[in-house]
Amino acid sequence: MNLTVNGKPSTVDGAESLNVTELLSALKVAQAEYVTVELNGEVLEREAFDATTVKDGDAVEFLY
């Protein structure tokens, strides 16, 4: 899956889609429990991480 992460191209191997929690784990995001996630310009509530799917071509920003 090809994404733009914090403005840079990134690839997650072996996945066509992941939820936000899985993406944080796959990318080994440090202190993931404290990060705010913006997906395609929309800031996500932490409670929505498990239910929100990240797909090929999406833009993700991790805000600390």
Rank of each mutant, 00 (worst) to 15 (best):
V43L: 12
K55Q: 09
D13N: 13
L23G: 01
E47F: 08
A15H: 14
D13G: 11
D13K: 14
T4K: 08
D13R: 13
A32C: 12
L23M: 06
V12C: 07
K55L: 07
L44D: 02
S17M: 11
V60I: 13
K28T: 06
L39D: 00
S25V: 15
N19I: 05
Y64L: 10
G41H: 05
A30V: 12
T21M: 08
E61K: 14
E42Q: 13
Y64E: 08
E61W: 15
Y34S: 10
V29K: 02
S25C: 12
M1C: 06
N2M: 12
D13P: 14
F62A: 03
E45W: 07
V60N: 01
S10N: 09
K28C: 14
T53P: 08
V43G: 05
F49T: 01
V43H: 07
S25I: 15
T21H: 08
L44A: 02
A48Y: 12
L44K: 03
E33G: 09
F49H: 11
E16M: 14
N6G: 05
A59Y: 13
E22D: 08
D50K: 06
V5T: 02
G41Y: 03
D58C: 02
F49W: 15
D13H: 15
D13E: 14
N6V: 01
E16I: 14
T36L: 11
S10I: 15
Q31C: 15
L27S: 00
G57D: 04
T52I: 12
N6H: 04
T36N: 07
V60K: 00
A15Q: 09
T36M: 11
L39T: 00
V12P: 03
G14E: 05
T21L: 09
V29F: 07
R46T: 06
A30Q: 12
V60Q: 00
E45C: 12
N6A: 05
D50Q: 08
A15Y: 15
A51C: 13
E47Y: 08
A26D: 03
N40R: 02
G57Q: 04
A51E: 12
E38S: 15
N6K: 00
L39A: 00
N6C: 11
K8M: 11
V54A: 01
Y64H: 10
L3S: 01
V60R: 00
G57I: 01
T52Y: 06
K55V: 10
N2D: 06
R46M: 06
E47H: 11
N40Y: 02
T53M: 14
V35K: 00
N19Q: 05
N6I: 02
Y64W: 13
V60A: 02
L44H: 02
V29E: 05
G57P: 02
Y34N: 10
K55I: 08
Q31N: 15
A59Q: 13
L24E: 03
L23E: 01
A30D: 13
R46P: 09
V37C: 04
A32F: 10
E42F: 11
A51M: 13
G14S: 09
T4Y: 09
L23K: 00
N2K: 13
V12W: 09
V37L: 06
A48P: 01
N6M: 05
L44W: 03
A48G: 06
L27E: 02
V43K: 11
V29G: 05
L24K: 00
Y34L: 13
G14R: 08
E33Y: 08
N40F: 01
L18G: 02
R46I: 06
A15F: 15
A15G: 09
